[in-house]
Simulated assay, not measured.
Amino acid sequence: MTDTAQLTARQTNQLITALRHGQALDLAAADLGVALPAVWAAARTDTRLAIALAGRDPDAAEERSRTLRADFLRLLALGVPPSRAELILGTGGSGGWRGDDPAFARACDAVSAASAPYGHMGQIRLTPARVARFLEELGKQGTTLVAAAAAAGVTPAAIYQRRRRDDDFAKAMDKARAAART
């Protein structure tokens, strides 16, 4: 048993099964011939294993929401803007989570504030090139405003602000949306 050996997918699944059935971690690891440092290393990137190590069933339905929230916070900590984090995770749910859960909203705000030095520090301008890219993406069938804004490298808030103050931009958005529907 070596401390640096990586767990195979089979060993990880067997370990999770043993933990779900109430076996002590040290005994389960020993039965599989893996050292605890290898388990800790695997848990850094294996969410199911981390959940099992926390004493919960990683296959339970409620763990999906908990995992998505944790992944959302991780992305915020890396300096990813919330709208892009939603796209990465394939969910538009963080806004709903924030409204449904004040503690999660405070956590998001705290993580965003702590990661500010790692995110974009300056304001991203809606340059003509970014506007063109946004409108091009918005004109594609099935593309949301959030996805089009992310593709152009700007926030949805910047798009909405521009739309409110620029009638020509608003008309161009409406035209792009109409093109996407045909």
Rank of each mutant, 00 (worst) to 15 (best):
F72I: 00
L73T: 04
L75H: 09
L75P: 10
A77P: 06
G79Y: 00
G79W: 02
V80M: 11
P82M: 09
P82A: 15
S83I: 03
R84N: 07
E86V: 04
E86K: 03
E86C: 11
E86L: 01
E86G: 13
I88V: 15
I88R: 13
I88F: 11
T91A: 09
G92K: 07
G92Y: 11
S94C: 11
G96C: 00
G96W: 06
W97R: 07
G99W: 01
D100Y: 07
D101E: 10
A103S: 12
A103W: 04
F104K: 02
A105R: 12
A105W: 00
R106F: 01
C108R: 04
D109E: 13
A110K: 04
V111K: 08
V111F: 01
S112G: 12
A113C: 02
A114H: 08
A114Y: 04
S115C: 01
A116V: 02
P117G: 10
Y118N: 12
H120N: 09
M121R: 11
G122W: 08
Q123R: 15
Q123G: 14
Q123W: 04
I124W: 03
L126V: 08
T127K: 06
T127V: 04
P128E: 02
A129L: 08
R130T: 02
R130I: 00
V131S: 15
F134N: 05
F134Y: 11
L135R: 09
E136M: 02
E136Q: 09
E137V: 02
Q141R: 14
Q141M: 08
Q141L: 06
Q141F: 04
Q141S: 15
G142Q: 14
T144I: 02
A151L: 00
A151N: 03
A152P: 08
G153Y: 05
V154E: 06
V154L: 03
A157T: 15
A158V: 06
I159P: 09
I159W: 06
Y160E: 15
Y160R: 15
